[in-house]
């Protein structure tokens, strides 16, 4: 449900509450109306042309670290 993809904010138009995001070389204008704060370089989840939420890089890192801890286990 609810296809949303992470894309990097490349530029912001605060007046229009919009941003250009980049997803592996694809640039698309989206609305940032649902976000209180957003900065260039942030990754946001894009759904139907709107940024739903910013991705928290520290939390993402933590989740990935959990996967890495599994390295000790042999499949």
């Amino acid at each position: 449900m609810c296809l949303a993809v992470p894309a990097r904010v490349e530029s912001l138009d605060a007046a229009a509450s919009s941003a250009i995001v980049n997803l592996d070389g694809i640039r698309k204008a989206i609305s940032t109306q649902l976000l209180d704060e957003v900065a260039i370089g942030d990754y946001v989840l894009v759904h139907v042309g709107y940024a739903l939420e910013r991705i928290d890089p520290d939390e993402a890192e933590k989740t990935l670290l959990l996967f890495d801890e599994l390295k000790a286990i042999e499949p």
């Binding site: 296809l3 993809v5 894309a7 997803l23 592996d24 070389g25 694809i26 698309k28 894009v46």
Partner: peptide, 12 residues
Amino acid sequence: RAEVRGACELLG
């Protein structure tokens, strides 16, 4: 290509 993959992810 990465861009094609990107466009596909974006549009499902």
